[in-house]
């Protein structure tokens, strides 16, 4: 089986799943519950893919909630003070998150591995504290009411919201895919494999690392803004540790540094979580998630996306 054929299979599959996603409201009718679940799932696919992009350049962040929250808050504040439509401000959220991302990236650029993990974690705590200390702007602990992307008065507004989030996600995924397969993506990979060698080969390590930070923060900010404009309210809970950890769990279980990994990871883990919930499991559910994470790191380091390969290897042997 040659390489082109595999790619075409993958593309086919991507296209089919996109079609299914597109037809979702028509297959099952406009169910607000189903679409809400899907919107949240899509937002997290977008957010995890953004995290994944940073991981592609060899930088693992434990504090991505900082960008998620900054994106949300920026968009909420711009809507409130300038009266722009949320569609435009979502972009503003992303841009400001990217700006902060570059600042954080500048302090982190010399740090690696778990130094970086610690410092990014610290920045999420810092973002939380600063948000609380500016109650005039952010509403402090009470948070801010936020305009919805599509006004509730529009008939079937949830369907339009779903399509909006879906299209945004697909566009972002496409952009990330292009980045991954471009010179920039190759440079990221080179840096991840060996920073010193990359430097020797003439890659401007600092520039590319900052680019990764900026782009990843930009998309995370967009994800955050989308989520809060869907909820209609923002509180400092967006900086929660969970919000920082979920994308890691999704990416690692799905498959790090691949385009389909975060998508697959988010869908599978969310479904698993929802179905375990139906058993009435509480802590057991998180124990399972912890175990899955450990087992995947140990036995399936390339995540769920490598399952077909594993099966194939098994069948061949």
């Amino acid at each position: 089986m040659n390489r082109e054929k595999i790619i075409s299979v993958k593309t086919c599959l991507g296209f089919i799943s996109f079609l299914i996603a597109l037809l979702m409201p028509h297959i099952f009718g406009v169910s607000q519950y189903l679409l809400t679940v899907l919107i949240i799932m899509l937002v997290f696919i977008l957010y995890s893919s953004a995290w994944n992009l940073l991981a592609l350049s060899g930088q693992g962040s434990l504090g991505h909630a900082a960008f998620f929250g900054i994106g949300g808050y920026t968009s909420a504040i711009v809507v409130k003070s300038l009266g722009l439509p949320p569609l435009a401000t979502i972009l503003a959220g992303g841009i400001f998150a990217a700006f902060i991302g570059v600042l954080i990236g500048l302090t982190c650029v010399r740090l690696k591995e778990w130094f970086l993990a610690m410092v990014t974690f610290g920045f999420a705590v810092l973002a939380h504290t600063i948000t609380l200390e500016l109650p005039g702007l952010t509403g402090g602990w009470d948070g801010l009411p936020v305009q919805k992307v599509i006004p509730v008065t529009v008939h079937n507004y949830i369907m339009y919201e779903y399509y909006l989030v879906l299209i945004t996600t697909v566009i972002v995924l496409f952009v990330i895919y292009q980045i991954m397969n471009s010179k920039v993506g190759l440079a990221f990979e080179a840096i991840r494999e060996n920073e010193l060698e990359a430097n020797v080969m003439g890659i401007n390590v600092m520039k590319y690392k900052l680019t990764a930070f900026a782009v990843s923060a930009f998309f995370s900010g967009i994800a955050g803004a989308l989520e809060i404009h869907h909820f209609g309210y923002i509180t400092p809970e967006v900086y929660g540790i969970d919000i920082s950890f979920w994308p890691i769990i999704y990416c690692v279980s799905g498959g790090l540094c691949t385009i389909e990994g975060p998508i697959l990871g988010t869908i599978i883990i969310t479904l698993l979580d929802e179905s375990l919930k139906n058993f009435g499991w509480t802590y057991e559910r998180y124990i399972m998630i912890g175990l899955i994470l450990i087992l995947i790191v140990r036995f399936l380091p390339k995540g769920f996306v490598s399952v077909p390969e594993k099966i194939k290897a098994y069948l061949r042997s």
């Binding site: 991981a55 060899g58 693992g60 434990l62 690696k112 591995e113 778990w114 993990a117 950890f245 890691i248 769990i249 690692v252 790090l256 802590y283 057991e284 559910r285 998180y286 124990i287 998630i289 912890g290 175990l291 899955i292 994470l293 450990i294 790191v297 140990r298 380091p301």
Partner: peptide, 26 residues
């Protein structure tokens, strides 16, 4: 997982955090 990369160690400890915290809660 020794020698498979620093990121893997971070992920493993993340899994351990979930495992130990919730086992204690249970």
């Amino acid at each position: 997982i020794r020698g498979t990369g620093k990121l893997n160690e971070i992920f493993l400890s993340l899994g351990l955090i979930y495992l130990l915290q919730n086992s204690a809660a249970l």
